[in-house]
Simulated assay, not measured.
Amino acid sequence: MKNTTVQAAVAVLLRRFLGLSLAVILSAGMAAADQQTGVVEVEGYATIVADRKDLAREAALQNAFRRAVEQVVGVALESKTVVKDSELLNDKIFSKSKGFIKTYRILGEKVDGDAFRILVFASVSRHKLEQGLDNAGLLIKKMGKPRIAVVVMEQNGFGNAIPGGVVENGLVSSLGKRGYALVDRQAMLAVQHEAVNKQGDQTDAVVRAAAAGGAEIVIVGRATARSTSALSGTNLRPVQVTVTCRAVEVDSGELLATVTATQQALHVNPATATSEAFEKAAAELSEGLQRQMIAAWTKRLTGLRTLRMTVSMIPQTDIKRLQDALKEQVGQIEEVHDRGYRDQQLRLDLEVTGGFREVIDELAALGLEQDSLKIIGYSAGQVQARWQGRPSKGGRVK
């Protein structure tokens, strides 16, 4: 009877322990998810000076705002970036924390010795924060500072569409100021030539040419202008322009952003009015493209994508060793799916996080004892590799 009672008591304690453990795990998971969405619970504190509890309370509230923003920044950026650029973050972000708070609710407050403590449930604006980080050039670092090519076919005064106009120059200038790496003009000549000679939708042709020029992202667009007769009683000529641009990742062919801007301008000279309208359109496009690209990149960094891999010349006996090495050595590979093997050619689907280029760089450095994996090509979410086995004693490859 006594043993039965002890067993029942142990069972109750065990259920309570498991329930508490599960609650801790779930609350940790919810906290991480909340930080992803910008909703956090934080405590702020400040020292009470000269018995001025009102001033200490306000200082504690500002400290809570700062800690809320710090937590969300910790999710948005890599820890090494936060440490390395702490002074820049303090100047551009943390010192202006209140401006990033959408809403907040005070859960509790108290005087604790010579300190005032306040517990706050705050919602941080991810949009404003990402904009602030982008203005500080910090999101570009997380994205790996991709090289960007810009080609916008712009209608000139004779009705011909040519690259290198007002919109293209405006985008290049704006992106350069934000810290993006731009493909130099010399390398862009082939891209622009391809755009001029291609009829209709030139996106695919421009993407291929941009890849040859070293670009990782290409922004391709078309700008048109329409002028009407002068306004009644004046010499002013109204001009309306429409510009559509798309940002495409070269490696995967993925559409990162698409934006259309329509602007108007008035001038006695239609050419001048057209230039002014194109300048305003370029500014609108720059903001829209960057916002969408950052959103796409942020989503990618926290999600999974499929990289299709083909490995030729690999013996069947080495397939498992390669798959194990991929999962153990390449941190961005989450899963490896075998899609078939024929004529010494292996097909794999790699579920990866981050950018394809980073994963491919790690594949090229894969440690396989005396064997090696040589990358022979990659494009549009696919990578081709060749297995290079170690020579046997007879000089033949294993």
Rank of each mutant, 00 (worst) to 15 (best):
M153S: 10
A115F: 14
L129R: 01
G164C: 09
I162S: 13
S86G: 04
G108N: 14
I148W: 11
G99R: 13
K145Q: 04
N90R: 12
R105S: 15
I118Q: 12
K110Y: 10
K141P: 00
L107S: 13
A161E: 11
L88T: 12
V124R: 06
I148V: 13
R147Q: 11
K141Q: 11
N156Y: 02
A122M: 10
L88R: 15
G99V: 01
A122Y: 09
S123R: 15
L171S: 08
K84A: 14
S173R: 13
K110C: 07
L175F: 15
V167W: 03
H127G: 08
P146G: 08
V166C: 03
G165A: 07
E130W: 02
I106N: 11
E78K: 10
K141I: 12
E109Y: 07
K98C: 02
D112M: 12
F94Q: 09
K92M: 05
K110G: 11
H127M: 07
N90F: 01
E130N: 12
V151M: 07
A122H: 08
I106C: 10
R117G: 11
L133R: 09
E109I: 05
V82P: 02
E78H: 15
S97D: 02
S173W: 09
G113S: 10
E154Y: 04
V75N: 15
N135A: 14
Q131W: 01
D112N: 15
L139N: 12
L77I: 05
R126V: 01
S173C: 01
R126E: 01
V83L: 12
K80M: 05
K142T: 11
D85H: 14
F100A: 04
R105M: 03
F158M: 13
A115Q: 15
G159N: 07
G108V: 09
E130P: 00
L88W: 00
S79P: 14
L77H: 01
S95V: 06
S97Q: 04
A115E: 14
I106Y: 09
K128C: 00
F100C: 02
I118K: 13
L171C: 12
V111H: 04
N90L: 09
L77T: 00
K142P: 04
V152Y: 07
E168Y: 09
S174I: 02
E154Q: 10
F116N: 09
L129S: 03
R117A: 00
A115V: 13
E78V: 03
N160W: 06
V172W: 04
I101K: 05
G144F: 00
D134E: 12
K128P: 00
N169V: 15
L88G: 06
S173T: 10
K98D: 13
